[in-house]
């Protein structure tokens, strides 16, 4: 073992979606401060396997903060104590020796638990299917430089587009609202000339699908923005509200 930190984990265990679930406590020894949080879980799982117990299931893939798959609610906050950081990029140097760390899955009606700390976030995919795209078939495109896009607009669209779809916004929100996720996609396209033809229909469809998935509504607490690992701004939510209201009041189609 490479480190000398010890921590106690209180981890949510739930066999599947029909199980009620409960917390279980595991001490973990020999943790190095240079370890990532997930590597600390690797140690725990390695031990549980050799002890003949069930390892803790959790979602993770790229482990470099971009795929959006990791999703742990750590000590009352999505992705743990740091801002702008996913669970996989959280390192044990952010904790102290002998800390007790509570780890739970994202909790929302729209994100049912698959097992232990893994949840089903396909609601996000369905929201995307409802309008999170520009309808351009392959081969239709004109030359990439034929429409100049001002750097500021391009940068703002990019900032909205950096969303990794991890769901921390939903997890952080006391209402389990998905407004930040949905508005980031709506904004990205609303800010670009390519997104204009479908702008109105897009916001209506995406909001309708968001509501149908059972997410809560937005009460502007700002928790999503504070916890978003990519720093997506709630000004995107305002933009979506504006687009939604404006569209409702102005759309030609009845």
């Amino acid at each position: 073992m490479s480190g000398d930190m010890n921590v106690t984990l209180k981890v949510w265990r739930q066999k599947n979606n029909n199980d009620r679930g409960r917390f279980e406590t595991y001490p973990v020894q020999g943790v190095s401060p240079d370890m990532s949080f997930l590597e600390m879980f690797d140690i725990l799982n390695e031990r549980l396997i050799t002890e003949g117990k069930e390892p803790v299931a959790f979602d993770h893939d790229c482990r470099e903060g971009i795929c959006g798959m990791c999703s742990m609610f750590i000590n009352g906050r999505p992705h743990g104590p740091l801002q702008g950081v996913t669970t996989c990029q959280l390192h044990m140097r952010s904790f102290k020796n002998n800390d007790t760390i509570v780890v739970e899955p994202w909790r929302a009606k729209a994100f049912p638990v698959v097992k232990d700390l893994a949840v089903n976030r396909s609601a996000f995919d369905r929201v995307m299917s409802s309008g999170g795209f520009i309808s351009i078939n392959t081969g239709n495109a004109q030359d990439a430089n034929s429409t100049p896009i001002g750097k500021d607009d391009a940068d703002m669209a990019f900032a909205a587009a950096t969303c990794i779809g991890c769901g921390a916004c939903v997890a952080a929100c006391k209402n389990a609202s998905a407004m930040l996720f949905v508005s980031a996609k709506v904004s990205q396209f609303a800010l670009l000339p390519q997104g204009q033809p479908e702008r109105k229909q897009r916001v209506l469809n995406m909001v309708a699908q968001m509501d149908a998935e059972g997410f809560g509504s937005c009460t502007n607490t700002g928790a999503c923005e504070a916890e978003c690992p990519k720093g997506i701004s709630i000004s995107n939510i305002a933009r979506m509200n504006r687009d939604f209201i404006g569209t409702q009041l102005s759309m030609q189609k009845v």
């Binding site: 209180k10 949510w12 679930g21 917390f23 609610f73 000590n75 009352g76 906050r77 104590p81 509570v102 739970e104 909790r107 929302a108 009606k109 729209a110 952080a172 006391k174 209402n175 389990a176 609202s177 059972g214 997410f215 809560g216 509504s217 009460t219 607490t221 700002g222 928790a223 504070a226 916890e227």
Partner: peptide, 18 residues
């Protein structure tokens, strides 16, 4: 909104983000 989270968290650190 309460219905949107039927199972509550065991620990919430709300003051950290709002």
């Amino acid at each position: 909104n309460r219905q949107a989270r039927p199972v509550q968290y065991g620990m919430v650190n709300g003051k950290a983000n709002s």
